[in-house]
Amino acid sequence: MQCPLPFATFRHDMTDRITITVNGEARNVASGDTVARLLAAIGLDTRKVAVERNEEIVPRSIYAEVALAAGDRLEIVHFIGGG
């Protein structure tokens, strides 16, 4: 059930959850979540992927320190077959 009061929804989003975009898809994460926590939630092996946040590389060594912000655009990539 959607809350009929827009203000209540707004307040809820602002305090607990933020929306980011991961590989082109909108995703809700807890405010304060880090890149490390996001990768763990998705279930990815950090040794096999690379992450870009708002067109800047996030080095693997600082995944646990980079907090996600509302509106962040992330790309998570890996190697696949190619010529």
């Binding site: 991961v22 590989n23 082109g24 898809e25 998705i42 279930g43 990815l44 096999k48 992927v49 690379a50 790309e75 998570i76 990539v77 890996h78 190697f79 696949i80 077959g81 190619g82 010529g83």
Partner: peptide
């Protein structure tokens, strides 16, 4: 060997990988 860089499939994070 040449390899391509592509988005991971978020809905199937455990799919076998080239590596």
């Amino acid at each position: 060997v040449t390899v391509a860089v592509r988005r991971v499939n978020l809905s199937d994070p455990n799919a076998p990988m080239l590596q």
